[in-house]
Amino acid sequence: MWAKILYAFLTLIGGIAYGLLLGGISRKITARMQNRRGPTVWQNFIDLWKLFRKKTAISHGVMFYLAPMFRLVGGAGTFLLVPVVVGSPYLSNFSFGGDLIVLMYFMVLGCLGMALGAAESGHPHAPIGVTRGLSQMAGYELPFILSVIVLMVADKTATLEGIVRAQQGGILHWHLFTHPFAAAAAFISLLGMMTSYPFQVVLAPQEIAVGPPTEYSSTFLSYMFSGRSVFAVAKYLLFMNLFLGGASNLLWAFVKTFAIFLWPLFITNVFPRLRLEQSVLFFWTWPTFLGLVDLLRIYLVR
């Protein structure tokens, strides 16, 4: 048991570092796409250390202090429920029976805690950002949960491990190919989860500062920063396990999560921004329709 906790902790540290590195790589790629040199790929580590060691002199109440913790715990908790390598004694974290349902609850914990804390900060931009974030969450959760339900019904299991085992036996057994419509719905809703560009109205630095974290500074921001990084890695791992057949070793986990990481990155660099009602309407039409198509297909084929 203690060994398992130790391995999960080490995996978590690795996940945070990997998330920060991916953030640096995305800044570099964005810069190259804009014909710039860009910062080093280690820039996010430097930023994190600087933020962590900055002084803070702001007090807005208890929830304001707790929100970055919620964000970090939400990210880390999601990460710890997703196995990195299924079946490995070291890298499978705390995945257990029924973990997909717990996971989907856990994924909104960070957002909700952030919403409470940001609302207490008293800055007028923060509630606007919170409203946008929660509305958009109601948008992308629907197609995502639909596609997860498709996989759960098809494989007759609610665990990530079972879903990964159902995909073994070659690339054509991946759910990306056996359930292409559900996969398309989920990968479109991934764009909303990552607040990548067409659905970036939550943060919107040009109009509402940075939305919810407007009042957050220094150490608070460093917790949110690392929570966000590890949450991103958790989502890439989750999508790898759901659609790309999991990973048999650490190298494959890196390759597959990196491939998933490139998808929102390339979309974000070439698209303008949608308004809130446009993005919610989009999530409730096309990806939802795709998810429903696959759900219907499963019932008809059976």
Binding site: R37, T214, S217, L221
Partner: peptide, 17 residues
Amino acid sequence: DAERLGMRMVATPRQAD
């Protein structure tokens, strides 16, 4: 491209140096 020196613009004074 000042970002190659590690600089970037932020929208709120709370996060700025």
